[in-house]
Structures are given as C-alpha cells and as structure tokens.
Design a binder for these strands. Structure first.
Lengths: 346, 346
DNA sequence: CTGAAAGCGCTTACAG
DNA sequence: CTGAAAGCGCTTACAG
C-alpha cells in the first residue's frame, strides 16, 4: 500500500520519458501523437509501480473535483436511502464520488453546507433538503456550480428541479378504490400548506368530481403527519354517523396511524375498510396487512437527478454557459397493490 | 457567489501584506509574532472579500483532506442510516466531511472503493462493510490511512474494530422472557456460520443452562434471515407437539416473518405466544403488536467509530506512528420492551 | 514525436 | 515583526 506515494515523476523516470508525456498518455489525450512503443512503456511503468494519480493535485490543476454533494434534511427521512442509492449508482458509473451533508431542518446549517460545497470545490450538488437560508437559495441562480433540487420546482430558484407527479399518483389511488366499488372514500390529508399536502388533496377532489361522487367535508381530516395525529384523525372518521368504507392516507406513516385506529375499533382491513398509503417506503411491506400504496420511485429520482447533474457539469465544459437550467422533470409514480384494499362490503 | 474566486493573493493585496502572513493569521499560527493591527487588517480583508481558502490547494500542500470515507455494503441495510447519522454528527463537529461508498456485496468492488479512498487522499475510513478482497484487507494493516471496522474484530486485520456485545443483549432477552414465566423458549437463529448468528445462539444456550432450563433441539430453527424463511421456521415450531410459548428471533426481520406465521395460525401475540426481535430497526416500532427487541445502538456506534477514527488521524500527526490499533471496542446493547411479549399463559 | 516551463492556490521553512 | 521563495503533484499551452 501507499507506503511512499509514487508520483508521476517516478513513472516518468521508469518509462524514461518526460512527466508531461506520462500525463498525456494516461489521460488518453487524443491530440497527442506518440509512438506506440512509448505509449506502451508508459502504461507498463504505471502498472509496475501501481501508480495512482494524486487527485488533489489533479483537482487543483483542472478545477474539477469529481465530487458531488448531496444535501438531506434528516437521516430519519424514509426516502433518503432510496434517493442516495440511485445517486451513488450513477455517480460511480460516471466516475464521481459523493459526499453527504445533513442540514438538520436548520436553515443556517443548510447555508453552511452550501458554503462547504463551494469550499471543497465540489462539481455539483443535489439538494434533497430545502432547509437553506432564503438568501443562499436565491444566490444559487448565479452560482457556477450546477445543482438540482429534489421535490421543488425549478422556477423558484432557477436551478433544475425534480418533482413527483402527485396528481397522477392520487388518480391511480382513486381509480383503484372506485373500481373496487367504493363511494365513501375519506382522505386523511397531510398539512394543507405544504406542496404535497395540497397536491394530494387536490387530486382527491378532482377524482371525486370526475367520477361524479359528491364531496363531503367531514370525509377529509387534516393530520400533522405523525402516527399519533393520524390515529386521531382516523378515529374521528370512524365515529362519523356514516363512516367511510375506504381511506386514502397522505403517506405510509399516516396510513399506519390509521390502521392502528381501525384495529383498535375492532374493525378488519380490508374487509370492513380499505386503506391506501403513499410513497411505498420500506415500512409499507411490513404492515399487517401489507399496505397498498403509491410508489414515488425515489431511487429512480435519485438516478435521474444524478444524470442530469453530471450532464450539466460536463456539458458546461463545452457549452461555456449552461443552457436552460429552469426545467422541471416529473417522475411518473407507480401503483403497488397489496393486501390493505378490497371490494366494498355489501 | 463565487463568480470569480477570491484567492489568498486578493486578501493579501487588500490587507497590504504578504500572502504568507494572511495564511498564518487565518490559520492561527501560534508561532507567528504579528502586530495586532496587522492581524486585524487581515481578518477584515478576508471578511470583506468573503474569502474561503481553496481546499484543494490546502490539501495538496498539507496532505490532509479533512475527508473521511464510509463504506457500506448495501443501502437496504437497515443499520446504515443510523450508523451514518452518528458518523456525520461527530465528523461535522470536528471539521470533516464524509463520503459514502457502497461495496454492493462484491469484494472486487469493495477493493476498488479502498483504492478510491487512497486516490482521493481521504484521511481515514470507516468500514461498515467487509465485502473487500482478502488481499486488500490484509494490506490495511500496513496502510498509513487509519481505519476502523464495524462489526468485526480488530484482531483479524490489525485495524481498530468495533463490536456489539452480543451475549449481553441475548442475556437481556432471556432474562426478560424467563421473568415473564416462560420456560418453553424457542430460537429462530440466523445463519449458524456468521459471527452474530453463532453468538446469539451461544447466548441462548448459555441462558437456558444458567437458568436450569433443558435445551431442546427441536426448539432451535435455523433461518436464512429472510422473512419467508423465518415464516417457515416459525411454522415448524408451531407444528410441534409441544410448541413454545415464546420465541427469540435472530433479528427484527426474522421476527416479522415469525409474527406472520403466528397470525396465520390464528394465534395471538403476546397472549398465546411472545416474540422478541433484535436490533431495534425502524421496523420494530411499526409491527403489530409493536416488537420487543434489543437495541444495538447503531447511532452510538457510528459516533464512537468516528471519534476513534478522528483521534487516530489527528493523533498520528503528533505521534508519528499510530499506537495500538488492535483494540476492540464493545457497545453495550439496550433492551426495549414493547407489546409483543407478555406473561406466559397458564 | 517529445521536452521544458509555467502555474493551479496554498503553506512553511528560511531570511532579513 | 514581515517578506520572498520553494514546492505539493499534477496538466497544458508552447517549443523544438
């Protein structure tokens, strides 16, 4: 192992050429005309000495670090692993390493992370957290470091944005339930001031309307997205005079809370009431019964984000100015039918 | 933002001193005697220009990257997030950034990751994966890059090791069950060629012996640690002539499989049979009923690993050769009682 | 076809 | 108390 680091000079000496030739051969510089025999000598020398170019020197010279930053808000985020997996997968393929930062739901800290990204000369960043000071966020537009924001629209900050197609997902949920004969469909919503909370509620209303099912205010319960809050919300639904036969929960965690309430009321899922979640987190395979849900395809989102980012990074080299950064990419969700939904009871 | 990067020369010009003075002031070089007034001018100039030293240049010069690598085997590992959280927490505190690599259960790939760690000049690495070629592993001993291995003994590779105290955890499980009056305690083991599989089985036998409970071969079922395999193992237990009243499952996933089998047999948990898991993964809070389990304190393990690693990195600077790397640190588990265990039925 | 030189942005002995 | 210089290990115009 690197007892004494072997440098380009060592290789040059071994191959009996100038260091610059070593560099150009090893980097496959196409503009270089070199005798085949020399080229081989260089490769052999490099292999013999087990030469690994020093990245730090390379970085300093080329202004390219081959490092990408990923900002997340908190580790307990159930999406985090899937997103990161997708990112790491394509990053590795394209020769980048990734560095993880946690903003911790603290905008000051988020801004510091961005500072660090610049300081370390990272080539780009994927922001899966928007806990960043407004000021910093606004400056992103003028930064020469490409970034892509997950779950945020590009229009806000002039960087590439990537979103789930919320309406499409909810539409799948509602078609499924209506197809099973349900008419009394309730919705335990997320916070109705967040984008996804609003979007999913909108999709719910839209589907009812399009299917000629009257909207009932009492069938919509806002939850704080905790299990406890969702449990309470479900209890309120179950205590209605005319309780629903199916519930569309804002996400899987909310669905869990709801399922507990249903069981505590002595009702069976899906015989008495059907439950649908959203997000297809690791948890949804492990509920009892296993949860029907919408897969937001977070791994795919991570992959796509990394691809777009790296394209932007490498495109920049040629293009000079980066082109249209202000585009939103939508990811189509997938519907996953498991055991928590069934035909409506007669 | 960094439209045109400001360098140490810009600050020097602004403060009207030599770049070397800027460097020494900003790095709080204690050997430097400098007029208070000059010092202030430097700080002001740096602040005014919003100067951030270029890490790449600094790295190249000082041979310190302030970067730590974390190797994991796969993203679906339920421990991963907790370990990483602990690591990131202390790394940030001490001024290091962390870089994540996935070995993917592929030793070749693992060795490549290690290569990359050297190439990028990382200051140290935490190996939460041992999917690394044997050859590479053996060379770790002679590497000048400090490393700590998680869930592996140090003796194998001459690097610091960190282990859970398996026997202590199992002992807690058994005391709990015996305290609830259980005598017919089964064990769905993990693979009996893995360290943890063996250790937990050993703990199970030991506890039986120490409590004067006879060991019954048919009460131990080896599982492949999948849910399906564990389901089958539990079914075998339930079909015994004299079935157990309590089961200690190798880990939470195994416990899930077992719980499904119990439910499918029409039995209730914990009324008819108690179930204990191991690891306190995110899942265990979400089973029905919620799972009693052993908390391996992975976040703490991550924190401790990062602390030890950074101490080694920084200790090296002074100490020259690093001291005793061959030490195993054991993490004491904690027992978490939830709802899947109860008094034995009369 | 290959070499010599400059320079990326820092830090650190060494002068003065 | 502060400055000038060398050098970390590369890459890349420029010579020849």
């Amino acid at each position: 192992m690197p007892k004494t680091k072997v440098t380009i000079k060592d290789v040059a000496r071994e191959a009996d050429v100038n260091p610059s030739v070593v560099s150009r051969v090893l980097n496959k510089d196409s503009t270089l005309k070199v005798r085949e025999e020399t080229r081989e000598r260089v490769w052999e020398a490099a292999a013999k000495l087990n030469y690994r170019p020093n990245r730090m020197a390379k970085m300093l010279r080329t202004k390219k670090s081959k490092m990408i930053a990923v900002l997340i808000s908190k580790f307990s985020d159930l999406y985090f692993t899937a997103i990161l997996e997708g990112i790491v997968w394509v990053a590795e393929e394209r020769g980048y390493i990734i560095s993880v930062f946690s903003t911790e739901e603290d905008r000051k800290k988020g801004s510091k992370c961005i500072e660090t990204v610049y300081e370390y000369g990272m080539d780009g960043a994927i922001l899966a957290s928007s806990y960043v000071e407004e000021k910093t966020l606004q400056q992103l537009r003028y930064s020469s470091v490409p970034m892509v924001m997950l779950r945020r629209s590009s229009r806000e900050f002039g960087v590439m944005g990537m979103l789930a197609d919320e309406l499409a997902g909810v539409s799948m949920v509602m078609e499924h339930l209506i197809g099973l004969g349900h008419q009394k469909i309730a919705h335990i919503s997320g916070e109705l001031f967040s984008r996804s909370g609003l979007k999913r509620f909108e999709g719910y209303r839209k589907a009812l309307y399009e299917n000629g099912i009257p909207y009932r205010v009492e069938y919509v319960q806002e939850s704080d997205q905790t299990e406890k809050g969702s449990y309470d919300a479900m209890m309120r639904l179950l205590e209605l005079e005319d309780p629903p036969t199916a519930v569309f929960a804002f996400n899987d965690t909310v669905a869990f809370g709801a399922m507990s309430a249903i069981r505590d009321k002595g009702l069976r899922i899906p015989d008495d009431i059907s439950v649908v979640g959203h997000d297809n987190t690791i948890l949804s395979e492990h509920t009892y019964p296993r949860l029907t849900t919408v897969d937001s395809r977070m791994k795919d989102m991570g992959e796509l984000a990394a691809k777009m980012l790296i394209d932007a990074i490498e495109g920049k080299e040629n293009a000079g100015e980066r082109g249209e950064p202000e585009c939103d990419i939508k990811i189509e969700p997938r519907f996953v039918v498991r055991e928590s939904t069934g035909r409506v009871r007669k």
